[in-house]
Amino acid sequence: RLHIEVEGTELMKKLVEEAKRRNLNVRAKVENGKWIIEID
């Protein structure tokens, strides 16, 4: 499991799109103003 903290929506969208393209499980949520992304 990969755990990433990202500031900025554009970067988050790119990460999520790339993960979906590779058929990975992606969860994204906002915590303290940062995107928290978990990829399995």
Rank of each mutant, 00 (worst) to 15 (best):
N32I: 01
A19E: 01
R21L: 10
L24V: 07
E17S: 06
N25I: 12
A28S: 06
R27Y: 08
E10N: 08
K34T: 05
R27A: 11
I4R: 05
A28N: 03
D40Q: 10
R22L: 14
N25A: 11
D40A: 09
L24R: 05
E5I: 15
R27Q: 13
E7G: 09
V16Y: 08
L2R: 10
A28E: 03
E31C: 13
E17I: 09
L2A: 07
A19H: 02
E38F: 09
V6Q: 04
L2P: 06
H3L: 14
E10Y: 01
E38W: 11
W35P: 02
L24T: 02
R27I: 15
K29T: 14
W35K: 02
I36G: 01
E31A: 10
L11P: 04
I37S: 01
D40G: 10
A28F: 10
L11E: 14
L11M: 13
I4Y: 11
E18D: 11
R1E: 09
E7I: 14
E38K: 05
R27G: 04
I36A: 01
T9P: 09
I39H: 00
E5S: 11
G8N: 15
K29E: 05
R27H: 14
N25G: 09
E31K: 07
L15M: 08
W35Q: 03
D40F: 15
H3W: 12
G33D: 07
L24Q: 08
E31L: 09
R21V: 06
K20T: 10
R21M: 11
K14D: 05
V30I: 14
E7H: 13
R1P: 11
L2W: 09
T9A: 13
V30N: 14
I36K: 00
M12V: 10
N32Q: 02
E17D: 12
M12C: 15
G33E: 08
K34D: 07
E17W: 04
T9I: 14
I39D: 01
K13V: 11
N25M: 06
V26F: 04
I4Q: 06
N25K: 10
G8L: 14
V6A: 07
V16P: 00
A28H: 03
E7A: 11
L11F: 09
H3V: 15
I39P: 00
A19D: 00
N23G: 15
